[in-house]
Design a protein around this nucleic acid. Structure first.
Lengths: 296, 296
DNA sequence: CCAGTTGTCTGACTAAAGTCAGCTACTTCT
DNA sequence: AGAAGTAGCTGACTTTAGTCAGACAACTGG
């Protein structure tokens, strides 16, 4: 695809959309709260959080946020209380009145969305919704980044747990003890674990461990169901190969189960070739290897 | 489609997109201009204009805009000069320095778009661009409104001219004298002409005239090539039928040429039935009629 | 040619948004 | 226990964005 055309389409869309719907944010006006305050209330309603979490989510200055919260508290819309675990922290939640105000904001935002769809016929509405859902998935996927993390850390553990849960649905599998071993094997200096997190939730992850001098093994590659089809698997595998190279490996291996057909297709697309069984993974039925030359 | 789900998708997309790209607008920052000022400079660069045109395009207060322009002028980025036609008006254009600054903004906006596409594979990039193009078309179509205008007015004339140009491409057609007749026949109180305008350009239009007591004729239905497939034709025909009812008609007629197959399909979908030739339009080959009962 | 209208500008405001340094209470590390 | 760091708050600002009521010059219709 022509690079110029592609960015032109993105920019054209941005202009049209923000002009028409971007005013969407202004729909928060008219409930007697300035926009920033309304957005904050909205965010708290979506999920009560600590002050610092809100600061991160909204990208606000600490002093500024403090004042906004104070104002919401004075208006009786939110309640702040010290966090039991760390009494420096404060947890913010909506009061009854705040919940009412939040529902109002919800309703307005919903009305905005309905207003956009309303002039369209059923058929065109379906097309728009499908296009937005597709764009949503791809935009999210494009803006997520993979970060190396300690395989014992909560996001990594969650990714691995979900990986096990997913494959247990495909074939008879018992992860007994595996997560604990992973936490060691996939950690530096002999391993790596990468996770992509979106809205605080891991959406894809996987690791590399060293099985022999110069030979790395790709393990636990997983992509959240709702995020499949957006190319995260390919990006992850490419990054894991880079990581293996950085660990000094000249060869990447991996094993998998015959039921995981999409995974096998991905490995084949990436140039992995079937090899004889290695290691002692009782759940693996297929084994692959690929020489790690300079990155493509 | 489930109404709730549809609005949910729109809202979900809005959140994700504005959070990730909406910061897009902030990309105008970092060139030493506040956002509003940068947007103004951008708009002037896109097309030099009078102060009032900018006011309309950006929806700014006259005093406020005046000051913003002053600031840009002081910075040597724009030049203002009285309009030759009406010396109350002032025309604004970029200076050389302004053009440089504008190019910077362009580059930043383009970089933003590229940055969104960059992490995606060719295949996913194509999918995202296609989805955004589709959403763009439908969002524009959904937010455009049809307004009754004098058929002699510039937007109506342009719509009719483009209609003639389009059909002349389909079959041998000579519009001699027609636009002048239209300006009378499609005007109140015996006719109506509707146009939808987007970014100052007509994108769809059409009219109704009275051919007999209680009988109206739909004429000059046209949709801009770039806007086809978004349901504007259906919306327009529905509105024209409403207008015919408002003129007191119980029957709608129309003629068309056999080469205009999409139009014929539209009429049939709307319940028009073929009838014998009426009138003396030498270019028409097919004739249709529909009883106008209460609106669906 | 004059009354009314239009296009732009100025003055005098206000509210919202955001920044920065320093402070206090609490936790963590050694 | 003490030092060092963290979470949040307060005070004192600045900038941006925007409103509104005139003022004034230039145009337009009768």
């Amino acid at each position: 695809m022509d690079e110029i055309t592609a960015t032109t389409v993105v920019r054209r869309f941005n202009r049209a959309y923000t002009q028409r719907i971007g005013a969407l944010e202004d729909s928060f006006l008219g409930v007697g709260l300035p926009l920033g305050t309304a957005r904050l209330l909205f965010e708290i309603g979506a999920e009560p959080a600590t002050v610092q979490a809100l600061r991160a989510r909204l990208g606000l200055d600490s002093g500024y946020l403090s004042r906004l919260l104070r104002r919401l508290e004075d208006d009786g819309l939110v309640a702040l209380e010290p966090d039991a675990d760390d009494r420096r922290r404060r947890r913010v939640d909506l009061t009854g009145a705040g919940r009412g105000r939040w529902a109002e904001l919800e309703e307005r935002a919903g009305a905005r969305a309905r207003q956009l769809l309303e002039p369209l016929s059923e058929r065109h509405r379906e097309r728009l919704v499908a296009a937005l859902a597709e764009a949503d998935l791809l935009v999210r996927a494009a803006t997520v980044t993979f970060e190396p993390v300690d395989p014992g850390s909560p996001p990594a553990r969650e990714a691995v747990d979900r990986y096990f849960a997913d494959i247990a649905r495909r074939f008879d599998f018992d992860p007994a003890g595996e997560p604990e071993k992973d936490a060691v094997l996939l950690a530096p200096p002999r391993g790596v674990f990468l996770v992509a997190v979106s809205d605080g939730e891991p959406v894809a992850g996987g690791g590399v461990r060293t099985i022999d001098d110069g030979v790395g093994e790709v393990k636990r590659m997983w992509v959240h169901e709702a995020w499949r089809g957006a190319g995260l698997g390919s990006r992850l595998l490419r990054l894991l190969e880079d990581a293996a190279r950085a660990l000094g490996h000249h060869t990447a291996r991996l094993d998998t189960n015959e039921t995981l057909t999409e995974a096998i297709a991905l490995y084949e697309r990436f140039g992995y070739r079937p090899i004889a069984r290695y290691g002692d993974n009782p759940f693996a039925t297929h084994f692959f290897e690929k020489p790690l030359t300079a990155p493509a």
